[in-house]
Amino acid sequence: MVRLAKAVRLGAIGLTLLALTACTAIYRNHGYTPADTDLEAIVVGESTRQDVARAVGRPSSIGVLADSGWYYVGSRFRHFAWKAPEEIDRQVVAISFDGDGVVENVERFGLEGGQVVVLSRRVTDSNIKGLSFLRQLLGNVGNISAAQILDN
Rank of each mutant, 00 (worst) to 15 (best):
V8A: 05
V8C: 02
L10I: 10
T21R: 12
A25M: 04
I26W: 02
R28T: 13
H30P: 00
Y32A: 05
Y32K: 06
T33P: 00
A35E: 14
A35C: 06
A35Y: 07
D36K: 09
T37D: 13
E40T: 10
A41V: 03
A41H: 07
I42L: 01
V43K: 12
V44P: 07
V44S: 06
G45W: 04
G45N: 03
S47G: 05
S47T: 05
Q50K: 12
A55S: 07
V56G: 03
P59A: 03
S61A: 12
G63V: 06
V64D: 06
V64A: 10
V64Y: 08
A66Q: 07
D67H: 10
D67W: 13
W70G: 00
R76S: 09
R78P: 09
A81K: 08
W82D: 07
K83Q: 11
K83S: 11
E86K: 15
E86V: 15
I88Q: 12
D89M: 05
R90L: 09
A94C: 08
I95H: 03
I95K: 02
F97S: 09
F97K: 09
F97T: 08
G99W: 05
G99A: 08
G101A: 12
V102T: 12
V106F: 01
E107F: 08
F109W: 12
F109C: 04
V118C: 12
R121P: 04
R122S: 12
V123L: 09
T124D: 08
S126Y: 03
R135F: 14
R135C: 04
L137S: 08
L138M: 06
I144Q: 13
S145G: 15
Q148A: 10
I149K: 11
L150H: 00
L150C: 06
N152W: 13
N152V: 15
